[in-house]
Design a protein around this nucleic acid. Structure first.
Length: 574
RNA sequence: UCCCCGGUCGUCUAAUGGUAGGACAGCGGCCUUUGACGCCGUGAAUCGAGGUUCGAAUCCUUGCCGGGGAGCCA
C-alpha cells in the first residue's frame, strides 16, 4: 500500500531499520481496505499453560502484538486451558511474567478458555438439539478403528443416530459426573469419509475427572481444543486468529463450529513456527530436560525458554529485533542461531558498560614498578557513548592477564604478549615481557615484565605503536568471581537428528556449561545487581546471575564477542 | 497410498506479470587504546520439464523434493 516509489526506496535503503511486510500483514491490510471487520484489528496470544514460553513463542507474541499495535488494535492474552491434566498455575504465572518482560501489554483482563466453559457447554447443547452432535459410547480404541486411515474412509459410530432427547440426557449425565473417564464422548456429526481426518466426527467433549487450576472440580467434562478455540476467538471478537502451520488441517473444523453455531466468525491464519539451529523448541522435550535434570531448571541459561535466555542475559529488545527480522511465511525453515546472537550483540554493544575481567588468570609481575604502590587510572565506560563517563581502575605491581594473551612461542600473526614483545594494558601502560617462570612440569606460572612510565593511560609520547591492547586486573584489588561459560546445549544443528536407536538426549553437548572459578574482576564490578549486564572487554557480554552472593558474584556469559583471531588460528591449524 | 501446505543466494526473507534486492553467515580491505564496534568492497539463488505472454520467481499443466495430518493433546 505504499504510495510511491520513493517510499519503497527509502524503506530499502541499506542500514535503515524497517519492519518488512509479510503475508499476514498483507491480509490485514486487505481486510482494512475492504472494511471486513469495520477497521478493527484484534489478535490474541493463546498459550496453553503446560510449560514455559520459549523463543518460538516470542515470534508469535511479536507477530500478534506487533500487528495489532501497528494498526491501532488490541491483543488478548488468553490461556488455552482446556486440559487440566497438564496445566498448572506455575505456568500461568511464568507466562504472564514473560510476556510482560518482553515488553507487551495485553488487553485487560487476562482471558482464559475456562472463562467460557458455561457458554461452550450451552453451545454443545445447541448442536445436539440441531442434530449436529451426539454422545458416543465407543472406547478410544474402537474410535480409532472406526476413524479409518489416511487412505480409507472411516465408519460411522453405531451411536451416531441416537435421538436428540437421549443425547441431551446423556450429555447432562456426563456433565453431572455419572460416568467414569473415557466412558463416553460428545462428538460432532460431520463426515466419516472426509479426507481430512479432523472432520471425521471429531470429539467435542471428553470425560476427565481432574481438578482444573481455575475451575477446581466444577467440571468433569472438558472441551477439546477444536471445540474451544474458535468460539473463544469469537467471544472475544478476535479478527485475525494467527496460529502455526500444524493447525492448517483444523481450519475447516474451526470454520464448521462457528458456522454451525451461527456466531461471529474470526479468520484463522497459519504461519511457520520458528526453528533454530542447535536448539529444541518442543515443550515436551524441554519438560523432559528439566524433569530428568539435564539442565538446572526452566530458567537454566542454556534453555531456549524466555526465562532461560533472560537469565542468560538476552534483552527484550534483542529478542524483538530478532523476531522482527526473521520474517513470517509458510515455509518450514530453520534460522541460524548466529542470527539471534547477532541481534543480542548489536543491542548489548549499544548499551553494555565496559569492564575488565580475567577469566583464566596468569600472574604478571612488573619488576620496575614500585613495591606497594597503587595508582588509579581512568577507564572509559563506553567507547561510543561519552555520557557513560569514566571510572577508576587500580594499577599495581602484580596483575592478572588472560592466559590466552601470553605465548612463549607465539604463532605467526600473534600480536599479544610474548618474550621480548611489548603490548598495551588497556587504559594502563605499555609493558614488555622480560622472563617467564615455570613450575616443575613446565607450566607457565608467572610472567615478568617491565613497564614504561611514560605510557601512562596507554599512549607513548615518542609515538611508538604496539600491535595489541590486552585487558588486565590488578591482583591486590581484584574481586574473585565464578563465571559460567555456555556453549550450545546440543552438538548438532538439528538435535532431533540421531543415530539409530538413540534419542535427542544423545545429542546433548557435554561441554554446554563450563564453570570457571577464581576469575578476577576489576573492583568496580563489586555489588553489580542481578541481571546487570556488561561487556568484559575483548571477551564478550556477561550478566550477573541471581545465584550471586554479596562477596561471591556469579556471571553468565551471554555471548562471546566475535573473534577474528580465533578464526585465523583455527585456519592455521587446518 | 489419501488430504493439506510449502520449494528464491550457505541460512532467513523481498520482488504480487516488467532491473532477482536485503539481512545474517563467508571472503577481502580500511579503521582501531577491545583481533570488538564501525566503514568499504566481494562471491553467492528463482527445484525440473512443458505451456500462456512482447515479457514469468510470479499464471497454467505436470513431475520431483520437503513439512504436516489417523489424541478422548494443544
Amino acid at each position: 500500500m505504499s504510495d510511491s516509489n520513493t517510499a519503497a526506496t527509502e524503506e530499502n535503503a541499506p542500514g535503515t531499520p524497517r519492519t518488512p511486510s509479510n503475508f499476514v500483514r498483507d491480509i490485514i491490510l486487505e481486510d482494512l481496505r475492504t472494511g471486513k471487520y469495520q477497521g478493527r484489528v484484534h489478535t490474541r496470544f493463546p498459550p496453553e499453560p503446560n510449560g514455559y514460553l520459549h523463543i518460538g513463542h516470542a515470534k508469535s507474541i511479536c507477530l500478534n502484538f506487533g500487528l495489532a499495535a501497528e494498526f491501532g488494535g488490541r491483543t488478548n492474552l488468553r490461556f488455552d486451558d482446556t486440559n487440566p491434566e497438564k496445566e498448572e498455575q506455575e505456568y500461568v504465572d511464568s507466562i504472564i511474567d514473560n510476556v510482560r518482560w518482553l515488553g507487551f501489554e495485553w488487553q485487560e483482563p487476562v482471558c482464559y478458555a475456562s472463562d467460557y466453559f458455561d457458554q461452550l457447554y450451552a453451545w454443545a447443547q445447541q448442536l445436539v438439539r440441531a442434530g449436529k452432535a451426539f454422545v458416543c459410547d465407543l472406547t478410544a480404541d474402537e474410535m480409532r478403528r472406526y476413524r479409518g486411515t489416511l487412505t480409507e474412509p472411516g465408519k460411522e459410530s453405531p451411536y451416531r443416530n441416537r435421538s436428540v432427547e437421549e443425547n441431551l440426557d446423556l450429555l447432562g449425565r456426563m456433565k453431572a459426573g455419572e460416568f467414569p473417564d473415557g466412558a463416553r464422548t460428545l462428538r460432532a456429526k460431520i463426515d466419516m469419509a472426509s479426507p481430512n481426518l479432523n472432520m471425521r466426527d471429531p470429539v467435542m467433549y471428553r470425560i476427565l475427572h481432574a481438578e482444573h487450576h481455575r475451575t477446581g472440580n466444577k467440571w468433569c467434562i472438558y472441551a477439546m481444543y477444536d471445540f474451544a478455540h474458535g468460539q473463544s476467538d469469537s467471544i472475544e471478537g478476535i479478527t485475525h486468529s494467527i496460529c502455526t502451520l500444524e493447525f492448517e488441517d483444523h481450519r475447516p473444523l474451526y470454520d464448521w463450529y462457528v458456522d454451525q453455531l451461527g456466531i461471529y466468525h474470526p479468520q484463522q491464519i497459519e504461519f511457520d513456527r520458528l526453528n533454530l539451529t542447535y536448539t529444541l523448541l518442543s515443550k515436551r522435550k524441554l519438560l523432559q530436560l528439566v524433569q530428568e535434570g539435564h539442565v538446572r531448571g526452566w530458567d537454566d541459561p542454556r534453555m531456549p525458554t524466555l526465562s532461560g535466555i533472560r537469565r542468560r542475559g538476552y534483552t527484550p529488545e534483542a529478542i524483538r529485533n530478532f523476531c522482527g527480522s526473521i520474517g513470517v511465511s509458510k515455509t518450514n525453515g530453520t534460522i541460524e542461531l548466529g542470527l539471534l546472537e547477532h541481534f543480542v550483540r548489536e543491542d548489548l554493544n549499544r548499551r553494555a558498560l565496559r569492564a575488565m575481567a580475567v577469566l583464566r588468570p596468569l600472574r604478571v609481575v612488573i619488576d620496575n614498578y614500585p613495591e606497594g604502590q597503587v595508582e588509579e587510572l581512568d577507564a572509559v565506560n563506553h567507547p561510543e557513548d561519552e555520557s557513560a563517563g569514566t571510572r577508576k581502575v587500580p594499577f599495581s605491581k602484580v596483575l592478572y592477564i588472560e592466559q590466552d594473551d601470553f605465548r612463549e612461542d607465539p604463532p605467526k600473526q600473534y600480536y599479544r604478549l610474548s618474550p621480548g614483545k611489548e603490548v598495551r594494558l588497556r587504559w594502563g601502560y605499555f609493558i614488555r615481557c622480560t622472563s617467564v617462570v615455570k613450575d616443575a612440569n613446565g607450566g607457565i606460572t608467572e610472567v615478568h615484565c617491565t613497564y614504561d612510565p611514560e605510557t601512562r593511560g596507554g599512549n607513548a609520547p615518542d609515538g611508538r605503536k604496539v600491535k595489541a591492547t590486552i585487558h588486565w586486573v590488578s591482583a591486590g584489588q581484584a574481586v574473585d568471581a565464578e563465571v559460567r561459560v555456555y556453549e550450545t546445549l546440543f552438538t548438532r544443528e538439528n538435535p532431533n537428528e540421531v543415530e539409530e536407536g538413540q534419542d535427542f538426549l544423545s545429542n546433548i553437548n557435554p561441554a554446554s556449561l563450563e564453570v570457571l572459578t577464581g576469575c578476577k574482576l576489576e573492583p568496580s564490578l563489586r555489588g553489580a545487581p542481578a541481571f546487570g549486564y556488561y561487556q568484559f572487554e575483548r571477551l564478550g557480554y556477561f550478566c550477573v546471575d541471581p545465584d550471586s552472593a554479596p562477596e561471591a558474584p556469579v556471571f553468565n556469559r551471554t555471548v562471546a564477542l566475535r573473534d577474528s583471531w580465533a578464526k585465523i588460528e583455527k585456519r592455521g591449524k587446518g
